[in-house]
């Protein structure tokens, strides 16, 4: 009966354009990454090149997205902004996934008081607003990309950790895991070699979505002035900067980075959901 069910899901997916969305989202992400990596070759201008005479220029052949109030090329800043835009969330996701997975698996496997302790610790971090933590760290370490990234890395641990714990608790009761125990393997080996790889796709799906959220949170911090400092090119900082231009009737300096954030976040969300769907399909 499962085969029949899957058949129908595949059909529905095709009909509703799920595959098209997935492909489009993946292409968008690939483009953003390429742009970030090859920014110096792609950008038409120096992102920090001031030219006050050309301030708030509209779209032209030389400046396709116009210039900001300091006359810097908006497109070039957007292209360079992809670098900090991706780097911050990448660190957040890698660190929070690694820590979250370790905490989650440890809680699930050991159970008892270890589980209670780790779960309560995660609840504590969860209850602490990430933005607040970031502001505190900024106060200590000073503004820049580092403090917000560290703060977010910690703040995202419970999101991953809770998911991993719940999935791992289920997985640990599966006969294949138990048969490895009966074979005499240590808990370490079973978790690293068998349990974690089997729950990895689900965690990956969550991480892809977290990437989008982290991007948004870090952009918000930059917008608020806690993150990347001027004149660094960052989408969040660009919006902040563009706000003044908005008052003077030039929408592009704020709109372009805003749109970039939306597109990137949505693309990560779609990809994450796609992975989650695929996992669910495989389980069924």
């Amino acid at each position: 009966m499962t085969a029949v069910h899957l058949e129908r899901r595949a059909l529905l997916r095709r009909l509703h354009g799920g595959d098209v969305m997935q492909t489009a989202a993946l292409i968008v992400l690939a483009l953003i990454v390429l742009v970030a990596v090859f920014a110096p070759w792609i950008a038409p201008h120096d992102p920090n090149g001031l030219d006050l005479s050309a301030a708030l220029g509209g779209a032209s052949g030389d400046h396709p997205l116009g210039t900001d109030e300091s006359g810097r090329d908006v497109l070039s800043r957007l292209i360079y902004g992809a670098r900090t835009g991706l780097l911050g969330p990448l660190v957040v996701v890698v660190v929070s996934t690694a820590l979250g997975a370790a905490v989650g698996v440890a809680a699930a496997w050991c159970g008892g008081w270890v589980d209670a302790l780790l779960s309560r610790a995660m609840d504590l971090v969860f209850a602490l607003p990430g933005l607040l933590l970031a502001i505190v760290l900024v106060a200590v370490f000073g503004p820049g990309l580092t403090a917000p990234t560290v703060a977010m890395s910690i703040a995202y641990v419970p999101y991953v950790g809770r998911l991993v714990r719940n999935v791992a608790v289920q997985e640990a009761t599966r006969p294949y895991v138990q048969s490895y125990r009966v074979q005499g393997w240590s808990g370490w080996t079973i978790c690293l070699r068998h349990l974690v790889p089997n729950i990895a796709p689900l965690v990956l799906a969550q991480s892809a979505m977290n990437f989008g959220y982290a991007l948004m949170d870090l952009a918000a911090l930059s917008f608020l002035g806690f993150g990347v400092q001027p004149p660094g090119a960052d989408w969040g900082a660009m919006i902040n900067n563009g706000a003044n231009a908005l008052l003077q009737g030039a929408a592009m300096p704020a709109l372009a980075p805003g749109a970039a954030i939306v597109v990137a976040v949505v693309a990560f969300g779609v990809v994450g959901e796609g992975v989650a769907d695929r996992v669910a399909k495989r389980e069924a």
Binding site: P175, Y176, S179, Y180, H194, P197, N198
Partner: peptide
């Protein structure tokens, strides 16, 4: 359950 007692990977 033979479907759950082997690591699928």
């Amino acid at each position: 359950d033979p479907y759950l007692s082997l690591d699928p990977r």
